[in-house]
Design a protein around this nucleic acid. Sequence first.
DNA 1: TGTATCGAATACATTCGTGTATCGGATACA
DNA 2: TGTATCCGATACACGAATGTATTCGATACA
Lengths: 228, 228
Amino acid sequence: MANPPVEAASARRQKTRDRLLDAAYDVFADVGVDAAPVELIAERAGFTRGAFYSNFESKSELFVALAERENDRRMEQVQVGLDTVLPSFDGQKLAALSTTDRVDVITGIVADFLALQGDDRQWCVIEAEFRAYALRNVEFGRYLVEHETAMQTQLAEVLERTLLGFGQRFIVDPIVAVRIITTAYKDVTVRGLLAGSDVPAESDSELHTVIASVVALFSEPTSPDAAT
Amino acid sequence: MANPPVEAASARRQKTRDRLLDAAYDVFADVGVDAAPVELIAERAGFTRGAFYSNFESKSELFVALAERENDRRMEQVQVGLDTVLPSFDGQKLAALSTTDRVDVITGIVADFLALQGDDRQWCVIEAEFRAYALRNVEFGRYLVEHETAMQTQLAEVLERTLLGFGQRFIVDPIVAVRIITTAYKDVTVRGLLAGSDVPAESDSELHTVIASVVALFSEPTSPDAAT
DNA sequence: TGTATCGAATACATTCGTGTATCGGATACA
DNA sequence: TGTATCCGATACACGAATGTATTCGATACA
């Protein structure tokens, strides 16, 4: 699944490849992967089918390439995002914050993280396509789980470090806590989209409840006397 | 969306309609909705395309009909399932159970409920298709949210009643708690499918953790002195 | 300036899916 | 037993999408 291009393509070639991938992203979000004609993708990129078949063997090859590009991008974004956000926390005296403020901090991190990971309409649609495809293709399924696990591991580390700043630590596998939070977040986001882009207020409060609860529940003071 | 057939079809007609829907269920799960040719559906039902077009105007009409049939079926299953399960609890002295046993009871109810709601491979694939389609079709999106909300409301009521048997009650909107549980459940189920039908043990324990935690966190004793 | 190469456009053959119009057989009913 | 009706099968016409083979233009390089 992770095959870097062996022969480095020319700059020009790379550019049209990218434009085709950009177009595919749009088209897939608009009409779905299966329903998307190669011609529409090429056309929206400003090319003809000739260019497409000169750059990709088939639509499925492009699909996989797109998945890898998008997933890699978001993984990078998350990593650099964390590198810039985290230092500003580590130095502070997080321990001095009130419980409410702590939850706000966590909520902020999670929201930032998940925004980096992508929460716009198009990406949600694409992700749904990925998921549906993955359920019908074992190899892609494994790849997707791997990617998602990597993302969740990232967030888990951040939360662990932040909790540590509070003098807290998880009492369950942090990745489980992260999964609860992220799936809840996705659920709220998607429901908002499905319902027709209203009820943003309710969504926010729901999210806050979830995050606050998970954090409160799954953590305990690090002071040794509180341990089981 | 909810248009019952005005003119009652003949028994024969209804039968072929059902067989076509059954076939569509399989085919959609196998190759996806968009990629499914009408011919394949008809053929797998033991008919030709002629029968299909005699019974449905188009594939999208069949798609909607299928969604409604499956959703309605599961809603019914859940309702009758609850009617048979609940009485056996209400009479018991649930309050006498230990905390661990209580969690087991809740977990059992949730597992039963979600199994009724459907957790086999095919249904998961179909649901993913529904979701992807819903994100591209406002009307269907609203319908789907409505259905899911109805299901969640059912489970919420059950859990509320059961907690009451424990002398507990939710301190947040029960439907929010239910959503956390169900999305976590779905997540675990789908990840299991994607990873290749192994790790069932790990999945179970993860689920148990989630359910136990949510229940423990979002409820409090009903005794008035414990209220905020 | 000439030439070779690379990359996208074009044209074409073909396959695939759709939808419709018509046919044929079974069933119901007199 | 005859006849009408219902319903699925068959045949056909059309459009859409694919993939490939070839052409054409631009850029790189001598």
